[in-house]
Amino acid sequence: MKNFTALLLASILCLQSCAQNDKEMNEKATQILSNLYKEVRHYDQRINYQADIFIGGCNLELLINDFPVQTYFDSGNGAISTSIPINTAILRPGTQTWKIRIYPIHDVTQINGVITKLPRASIEENARVEIKIEGIRYKENGDIEKHFGKVLEFKAPLIKDEKTGKNKLADAGKTYIEYSGTFEANVPYNLSGWQNSEDLRSIEPEMLKLEVVKEYEKISQWLKDRNLINIAQAKLKSKKEEAQALFYNNSTNNEYITDFIDTWGHENTKVQSLENYSLQFYGNGKIVTLISNTYKKSPLWATFKDDKNEDNYVIYSLYLHSPKGKKELEIIR
């Protein structure tokens, strides 16, 4: 009985200690990230560029200035419509580049007992892609204050099928399609970002891969330890730029902190091992990341129990660069 009582007391003390550690971790991470909005400049000139995307019957990757702002790799022939902010890929005012990469849809299959996704042989005739980019100013409560008008409106070209008389994708039948162009953005800021970063393509691929994996494994261990302080410090430079690009105010800063703790600080998180991945370059070779060969997303992910005690998961994307004159990799987005 004494042994049971001692064990119970030890368990209670352990739980209390863990709860206290989590609370302190949350508070310190909050302190690190709580003043992002105070460094935001030109708030009265703010303009948020929003991309409205419609796709059907294909997979897609949208890049702004060679940085991925939206990816979709899934199965099915249905249509999907979404709207996303793209300012974090816009580093300075002036001419910006856009690129749409189109791939065949994927079918879910099982190979040697492992569920995987395999792309179809080609992009099909019923595939559709549309994108619009518009400048918007938001009020502090999130309502739209002003429309600055569309700076881009693109539809993948269609042709009429001579047999059926129906429209079909002009470039159907290919395994890959790419459309690109430019648009003008009048943002009032200038971010360092990766403008002056090292070109990582000059590094021997296997050596670079080892360094990238080392960074991922470091973050993975911090996730396992729920070390929000180290994660917040590692992301601080990137988040300062994102706060400026998205014109954080006190309210949006607090929302970000809540999201940060919820995303990176799940309790009882089970971080999965890194496997089956490849290097992927962005930012004209100045940014590198890891992409799962199976799911075309980050291979860093974890499972957890949500509020309803149901199984859920979260994927952690990391975009790394090496500032000019440095060899070490850092998180830039």
Rank of each mutant, 00 (worst) to 15 (best):
I229R: 06
P299K: 02
L200K: 04
F183E: 08
Y319W: 10
K224D: 01
N126C: 07
A185H: 01
F281A: 09
I84S: 08
D306S: 03
Q16F: 04
A170Y: 14
G193Q: 03
G57V: 08
S251Y: 11
C58G: 13
D143F: 08
A243M: 05
E162W: 10
Q233F: 13
Y43R: 12
K163N: 12
L318I: 15
Q70N: 11
L329R: 02
K308M: 06
Q70I: 06
K235S: 11
A127C: 04
S292G: 09
E130K: 14
N190L: 05
N167H: 12
W222R: 15
E255P: 00
I136P: 00
G193P: 08
N65T: 03
I261R: 02
K214V: 01
S238N: 10
T252H: 00
T109I: 14
P68A: 09
Y49S: 02
S317T: 08
N112T: 08
F148N: 02
G173R: 12
S81I: 06
Y138K: 13
Y282S: 03
E124L: 14
Q70H: 13
E215L: 06
L60C: 11
W222H: 15
L62A: 03
H321Y: 07
L200C: 02
I84A: 04
F154K: 11
Y138P: 04
L236S: 11
F54C: 00
A302I: 05
S192A: 11
N276L: 08
D199H: 05
K117T: 06
W222D: 13
Q70C: 04
T109P: 01
D307G: 05
K166D: 14
N87S: 02
L200V: 05
P205H: 05
A234Y: 12
S11Q: 08
H321L: 03
F304M: 03
G94R: 05
H42T: 03
L228H: 11
K224I: 07
A302G: 07
D161Q: 06
G113E: 14
F4N: 10
E124R: 15
L246S: 12
L60M: 14
V212H: 07
S75F: 13
I53D: 09
I111Y: 10
Y72T: 10
R120T: 06
E153K: 11
S251M: 13
T303Q: 10
D306I: 03
N26H: 09
L223W: 08
T303Y: 14
I12K: 03
N112E: 14
E255Y: 12
T269W: 09
S322N: 00
F4H: 12
L60P: 00
E24P: 00
L290A: 01
T97V: 01
Q272P: 07
V129T: 03
R101D: 12
T109K: 11
L223D: 06
N312D: 15
